[in-house]
């Protein structure tokens, strides 16, 4: 059993028929079980369609490109190398300790969860960074003073293989202080250095961890 008008039920449900045709369809529905059944079948769809926006549908049509996947793949490669090289490079990272003055490093037993706070000074600049295991990476909180006011700064996390991630960036206040929260995909135990640097790459403070 079919009805020639059944294929108009979709347009009726979505409200895109011209007023005259819409009225006609409404009258037809009262007398045609086939079309009523199609209408019932579609009844919930407009509500569900309204759950996403036109922009989302357009974006979904064109999913993130291959380039974006390659970026992800490269990041995964870095993470993989990091896992492999961590033990080899931890000795090298320890050497960096020597380069710093006035530094205190809290103990960091591998695999432990509590937040780690490290302080460092370099000339006028004094800083304290707390690293905490976040969901699957690290949350960093940095307190900084003695930075030239208006100085653009970046908080950079360095992994064992030298992989660098910018965890946050900001501009120092007039008073030269800042409190910054940042995030890194590296787990606390994978973070070998935390550096505060200028966009030109000049280190303001360097926190080696081991």
């Amino acid at each position: 059993m079919t009805c020639t008008r059944e294929t108009s039920v979709g347009a009726y449900i979505l409200g895109i028929l011209e007023p005259a045709e819409r009225e006609e369809m409404a009258r037809h529905l009262a007398t045609c079980a086939i079309c009523r059944s199609a209408r019932d079948e579609f009844a919930a769809l407009p509500g569900l369609l309204s759950r996403v926006t036109a922009q989302e549908v357009e974006t979904a049509t064109e999913p993130p490109g291959e380039l974006a996947f390659r970026r992800l793949s490269a990041a995964a490669d870095r993470a993989r190398r990091l896992r492999r090289n961590r033990s080899v490079l931890s000795a090298a990272a320890a050497v960096l300790l020597v380069l710093l003055a006035g530094l205190t490093v809290a103990a960091w037993p591998d695999g432990s969860k509590p937040p780690t706070t490290v302080s460092a000074s370099h000339g006028q600049v004094h800083a304290r960074v707390t690293i905490q295991a976040a969901d699957t990476g690290s949350q960093l909180t940095l307190q900084l003073r003695g930075v030239p006011s208006g100085q653009r700064c970046r908080l950079v996390v360095v992994g064992a293989d030298g992989q660098r991630e910018v965890a946050g960036s900001w501009t120092a206040t007039y008073a030269g202080t800042a409190e910054v929260k940042g995030w890194s995909g590296l787990a606390p135990s994978d973070v070998h250095r935390v550096v505060v640097e200028t966009p030109q790459g000049r280190d303001l403070v360097d926190f080696p961890l081991s």
Partner: peptide
């Protein structure tokens, strides 16, 4: 997290 990191930048 990203949003907070950005908020930390006064500019």
């Amino acid at each position: 997290d990203h949003h907070r990191a950005r908020q930390a930048r006064p500019t």
